[in-house]
Design a protein around this nucleic acid. Structure first.
Lengths: 294, 294
DNA sequence: CCTACCCGCTGCACATACGCAGCATCTCGA
DNA sequence: TCGAGATGCTGCGTATGTGCAGCGGGTAGG
């Protein structure tokens, strides 16, 4: 069962509305002949006459009047849709999906809530999952990634201030085990380290190379668990500077090193990068990043 | 503000629904390349990306999902419209407009009511007006015309049994003036005739040529008024045989003559003639005409 | 009654859009 | 790790649809 072409329905709609082929042709911006051919083709596929042809123009039959009412609403629907889509880039509103690693959620959440206050029409979705969300699939508008420079094509990467990391111990740990004088004293202490052998984090690699395996007394996979372990005095471990500096219970064992810095990237898909919504968020995020503790 | 082509919206709709260009192309019965070109053109006119392109296919963006929901209902609306129009010729229902001269209304009304009983979905409009309704303008589905063979192109004419006419007088008239013995006696009687000089009715022409003008004592324009005048005894006049034979008060002065017969025609527009509704009425009408009094 | 305008129709030439085919890329499974 | 399948993309030749112009017919106004 052959379905009629939508363009032909639109042509027939204008003819039914205006009553003349000439008027419809002018409105549609096509030639009179095109209008006639569309009507003929449509009537052929439908197997019914839609119009009575006479010298004064085209008068819709019952079927034509039926088409008129249906296509009338379609016309309005499409017009609304069109202006909605065209205007969507202008107004900052609708859904805004951000994805990041869980570790910097406390850094991002204030930024997101402030952005939401700035643009009340925006609905924020903040996804922090183990897996990397694919920007290609439209899963997120903006991704905050840590590590090496993202190289995916079609992705736009912009730098953020890196996450500085240092070695800390809780005051409870120091009270029990003291504070290492220098690196040679590390063997006499207890350390908290990630369990994975293949971690990409440079400071953990440094830890494996510097501290004897026997000194690493607490291992875990979940970053949040490792941080908690350090706080609880399970051992000496790493923490982001911005987190530790806010916690008076943590004492710096070793200061942050540039090679430990985790580069932070804002990544967006090239198609979404141009939209005003994303642009507004990016400027807001970069502005907020200037005030981040370093 | 350029409006997007409806066909391109349909293409984009199928892509959004199926997620792949290939699938949409197969459903639409066009080539993959056409689908891509439609999407590109539509996104260009809308100024916004509708889909995220990736190796697995096309994933709709917010705008694409918006289009999806709108076009979904459009698709359903058009499908319903299409089947409704296609099927409308199959079911005998809706409006049926008949037009005729007022004089034979009493002959047609029983036919119309019987037809309405046969097809309860039909709504009959019976138009009897002085002016001739134009089938071209879709003013009526079927016209009952009297007189010469209709010659308009695009009109289909079918014969009906002609209306036979004879000369009558009321019993009241005969009681007062007697009954003419033959045509030479007409000068001593009173006659009822139409007022118009240019009447096309052959029996009135015959009357003018046969009866002296002084014998025509009652003139009128309205056929119904003339009939009433004959009944009231104003004079001798014409009446359709089927009407007079039902009235015992009328006495036949002269029997009907073939040259007085008024040919009756069923006329339909060629476009509407093929529809089942009109066909059903035509067969019903012709069947009923067989039982008409002649 | 006649003339001028409007509308719809159709043959022809051209441009646009289409189908085709080959290519590049990615995903999934062995 | 490699291969098979699927998907999207692009250049080229063709066909379909479009624009153009002239014609015929009907209506309206003088």
């Amino acid at each position: 069962m052959a379905q009629p072409a939508w363009d032909e329905i639109r042509t027939a709609f204008q003819v039914a509305r205006l009553g003349t082929v000439s008027g419809a042709a002018e409105v549609l911006g096509v030639h009179h002949a095109t209008v006639i051919r569309h009507i003929d083709a449509l009537e052929k596929t439908l197997g019914t006459k839609l119009f009575q042809r006479h010298a004064r123009g085209y008068t819709p039959t019952e079927a034509g009047r039926d088409l008129l009412t249906v296509a009338q609403t379609t016309e309005e629907q499409f017009a609304q849709l069109s202006s909605r889509i065209k205007g969507q880039g202008e107004v900052v509103g609708g859904e805004l999906t951000i994805t990041s690693i869980a570790g910097i959620a406390d850094l991002l959440v204030p930024v997101l809530t402030a952005f939401q206050d700035l643009f009340p029409l925006v609905q924020v979705r903040f996804l922090t999952d183990m897996r990397v969300f694919r920007l290609d699939y439209g899963e997120a508008h903006v991704a905050i990634r840590a590590g090496a420079t993202p190289e995916e094509p079609d992705n736009v990467a912009q730098p953020l201030p890196p996450i500085r990391t240092a070695l800390y111990a809780s005051r409870g740990y120091i009270a029990r085990h003291g504070q290492p004088k220098d690196e040679s004293d590390f063997a006499n202490h207890r350390f908290v380290c990630v369990d994975s052998e293949t971690t990409r984090a440079p400071f953990y690699r440094w830890l494996r190379n510097t501290v004897p395996a026997s000194a690493i007394s607490f291992r875990g996979t979940e970053p949040a668990a490792l941080e908690e372990a350090v706080l609880q005095g399970a051992g000496i471990g790493f923490s982001a500077v911005y987190k530790a500096s806010a916690n008076p219970d943590l004492v710096e064992i070793l200061p942050p090193r540039p090679e430990w810095d985790a580069p932070l990237w804002i990544v967006t898909h090239v198609d979404l990068h141009r939209t005003r919504k994303v642009q507004a968020f990016l400027t807001h995020l970069k502005e907020a990043a200037k005030t981040w503790p370093v």
